[in-house]
Design a protein around this nucleic acid. Structure first.
Lengths: 338, 338
DNA sequence: TGCGTTTGATAAATCGATTTATTTGTATAT
DNA sequence: ATATACAAATAAATCGATTTATCAAACGCA
């Protein structure tokens, strides 16, 4: 177990001071008027022995960690996993590492995680925030930390965020169902005050109101455990036999819904038409045909990391926060009027 | 932007030395014979002002970071995402954070990432290793770093690993197809020398050899880009019209395969029976019925983190490396003999 | 009384870098 | 000839903790 070499070792081997070595390695040789020959000599030796500065010591001194904290709802959810993956790539390319974690939409857990990240001196935060976390995030902002929210935002927090046009997406999709002739359209969603869920619900309401149909909304309590989602869903579908279409508000509800529908032997779309938020790969291919609203995953990830890197690189404390709203795609499948 | 308070501030406020504070906070008060009253006073104040030690400084001094580096093949692959999620939970519960990244099975990228992790002074490594990374991992081990491999192992690296019984799994599944009366069974896999892929292939060969049928193997070059997988697959299926069953060696190949089969209008299982490694949620529910080998995700994650935590907590340098081999489940669906 | 031992706490060294302040020698200007 | 500026490099301070070595007071015992 060889001991790693430090800047002192390098300095001694070359008979120069560590200050000089540090300046050279940080590209401040010009500015500090260090002779080109010495620069050459130091760089050559460093390369030769493969010396790498201890980043902990560096971070301790400079206060920067080159780490971005990424908090998603659940990393095993394909939507968040894909976004995390894309963000990861871009971050690495820009010299940043990612520490990630899943919040489970749990305020307390999220609070602990934020404190953990803070403790770890991450340089910036990317968060899909649960409700109730406003104060913690505002406190981050007050301390000058860059924070970018995505998937949803917090009305009481003034910082950058990236979202999709939720209201229009569901409005548009519901409108489409109505045009197809469906009349009893239910909306199944998580019971949540999160902005994106509220907007989706509102879009559905708006569309139904315009046509005078009666809205039927079923709210499910968010839970990782799928059984606790499928139970209420089964009850709901059994009770409301008159439905001819169901709109699932999130991919998690959507997949659980599909399972329930399958187990109840309901035929899609002849018995019931389906629309789901988020497009799964498999939706594209197999029966039952699920019409889906596809989020522009690459664009979301790209916007998020771009905004954050911007904040990190320029000391743009003064720039007011920006909101980015992206468009979704509407993928229609199995559209046979009942 | 208030400045965080340090141990010096605490010490000054209380009129004691920072040494004392440090000892108390690290639970060495007894050992260092610090009076209970003082311990009480310090702890109370620390709690009151919410002081938290700077973990960077701590790491710099102690050499431990309480971070585990997790390297999967691709975090957006549901199999790896789920495992990462479970490992994350267990790690957090034990006071460890996770830094993760995707290797893409790319040796060079992995090498860079390992060096990045090392640079970051992670305490332990969990890796689904690509081929060609043996030297780098051996170098880690030589430096006394705990490394746990999973999903596959490296024959030339002597360290802990967690795997499933790949050979038996494919042998068993192939055997099942044969018993169902299928005779022309193809095996589609990634071109890879990785242990798990070789074992899966071998299991298939063994089963076919026993029954005297001719093996048909199609190797695809690993790639993130699905089009580059679907292309060759399409060609393959078009050429081999006589097949009555196809065995997909990984979930990635499996989902791509399903797409191809769908686009070619092949009926499952009447035209072609399918078996895939890894069980997707959706497989359980919808046509076409895909028989699948389900990996015990929880058990894998649990074993991995348990083994690693063990190494981290006990200075068990002397304990020889252990190999954990887990069983899979075989989920049969749509089994109608042709 | 005087010497060794235990108690309870602290001063100083250390981890490995960055950054600020200082030094030394040389060239230019007055 | 002396002050001034500049070039080139370095010594020392710093980041915030842990750990080692040290110290002062009290205690025990001959």
């Amino acid at each position: 177990m060889k001991k790693k070499l430090s800047i002192v070792n390098i300095a001694q081997s070359l008979n120069v001071s560590k200050t000089t070595v540090s300046f050279i390695l940080n590209g401040r040789a010009q500015e500090k008027r260090i002779s080109p020959e010495l620069v050459e000599r130091v760089l050559k030796y460093v390369e030769e022995v493969g010396y790498k500065p201890n980043s902990l010591a560096k971070s301790l001194r400079t206060g920067k960690s080159n780490i971005i904290g990424l908090m998603v709802e659940d990393i095993s959810n394909p939507f968040f996993a894909s976004i995390a993956r894309l963000i990861e790539d871009r971050a690495y390319k820009n010299g940043y590492k990612i520490i990630y974690c899943s919040t489970d939409n749990d305020t307390l857990k999220t609070r602990e995680l934020i404190s953990m990240f803070r403790d770890r001196h991450v340089d910036g935060y990317i968060i899909a925030p649960p409700e109730g976390i406003e104060d913690d995030i505002n406190s981050l902002l007050k301390d000058g930390m860059p924070v970018v929210l995505f998937d949803r935002h917090l009305p009481d927090v003034s910082t950058d965020f990236v979202e999709i046009d939720n209201l229009f997406s569901t409005y548009n999709a519901t409108k489409h169902l109505i045009q197809q002739g469906y009349k009893n359209i239910a909306f199944v969603t998580f019971a949540s005050g999160q902005t994106q869920m509220q907007a989706r619900l509102q879009g559905y309401y708006n569309a139904l109101n315009e046509s005078g149909y009666k809205p039927v909304v079923q709210e499910i309590v968010f839970n990782q455990n799928e059984d606790l989602i499928m139970g209420p869903l089964t009850t709901f579908l059994k009770k409301n036999k008159n439905l001819d279409a169901v709109f699932f508000g999130t991919n998690h509800v959507g997949t659980c819904g599909l399972k329930v529908i399958n187990s109840l032997g309901i035929k899609v779309p002849s018995d019931l038409a389906l629309v789901s938020f988020d497009d799964y790969d498999v939706f594209k291919l197999f029966s039952p045909p699920v019409t889906a609203i596809a989020q522009p995953i690459e664009a979301i990830a790209d916007s998020v990391i771009t905004v954050l890197l911007n904040r990190l690189n320029t000391s743009s404390q003064h720039i007011s926060s920006q909101s980015i709203i992206l468009k979704t795609d509407f993928n229609i499948r199995g559209s046979s009027k009942p």
